[in-house]
Simulated scan of single mutants.
Amino acid sequence: MGNLAIIVDLETTGLDGGSDQIIEIGAIKVDLDTGEVIDQFQTFTKPDDVYTYFGDEDEEFDEEDVEPDRLDPFIVELTGITDEMLEGAPSNPEAVEAFFQFAGDLQIWAYNAGFDSKFLNVHTEEHRPLKDVLALAKRTFPNLTNHKLATVAQELNISIEGAHRAIADCLITKEVLLKGIQFQIENPHPFHHGFKASDYRPKEEGMFFGKIIVFTGALVTMTRDGAATHASQFGFKIGSGVTKKTDYLVVGIQDLSTLAGHDKSTKQRKAEELIAEGVNIEILTENDFIRMCGIGE
């Protein structure tokens, strides 16, 4: 079903991934081709109790003088999340495990992904790479005052209602991501001006040396030049068109207005025709290409 991806957002007790903890995880499953939200995941998560001793150091220890720390009033004011809302919620490790079960093997996006990664990675051995919408926003809209999520959203006329709650921030991030995708479609990054696909020399020791790969459509996480450079480093020969010698076709986001009434590019339709004739061509999404080459891991 479509070009599915996960967008995740965390609310935390602070900014330090080593000492602060998660209090809410929100995620949505999105079809990047249509913008439709297919499913969503939300859970509060109770941090491990941190205790403060209020007794006199010179007196005998008394359990009644020990109280668990409460959420910082700033965090309560910012997010609207209270200690009472976290009572009975799963622990951070349990919540993170549930999130990754929801995400499955889909590509995961976040706004300022490095922040979310450091909190998630504390509680999992998966250490899944997260794609960064902030990096995409900086590359796509470089002239904004700053690239905080709220600033970018407002500059792009995206509502920020409900900001600083996980699902609301996911929905805002989704709109920024889709705007970035649309910009990529309308302003495609082809191979370097004046270069041909054949100018990308395949690395002979690459694991895919001898294979031919072709790209079609706008890519989201990298430019077409960047994708071709990565592919050639893994040994791929970059093809300019689909033929019987093609091994892989990577399909990006298609601009339907340029397809003369079709819903697929000429390259994709050619690949499907050859596959029907028995030619062994594998059609990949951008996510498939990234996973196959291990880019970002």
Rank of each mutant, 00 (worst) to 15 (best):
T145G: 00
G296E: 09
A5Q: 00
E204M: 11
I213L: 14
D288T: 11
N112H: 14
D169W: 09
K244N: 13
G252D: 08
D49K: 11
V8R: 00
I290H: 07
T12K: 03
F234T: 01
A260R: 13
T124G: 06
E97T: 12
N187S: 13
V122L: 13
T285V: 08
V242M: 04
A228V: 00
M1S: 11
L32I: 05
K244Q: 12
F100Y: 15
K148A: 02
T12H: 04
E155N: 13
D225W: 04
I22Q: 03
G296L: 10
E84W: 07
I185S: 08
I22Y: 03
V133W: 00
N112F: 10
D132C: 12
F141T: 01
G17K: 10
K131Q: 14
E175W: 03
D247K: 05
A276Y: 05
A276P: 06
E36T: 13
G104R: 05
E84T: 12
K174V: 07
F236Y: 12
H262M: 06
D116W: 01
K174F: 02
G217I: 02
K244E: 14
F209I: 06
D263N: 14
I38L: 13
Y200T: 02
P68G: 08
I6Q: 02
H127P: 00
M207I: 14
G210K: 10
A103D: 05
L249C: 07
Q42R: 15
F183E: 08
E161P: 00
N157M: 10
K131H: 05
F61Y: 15
T43N: 10
D48N: 15
K29F: 05
P47G: 03
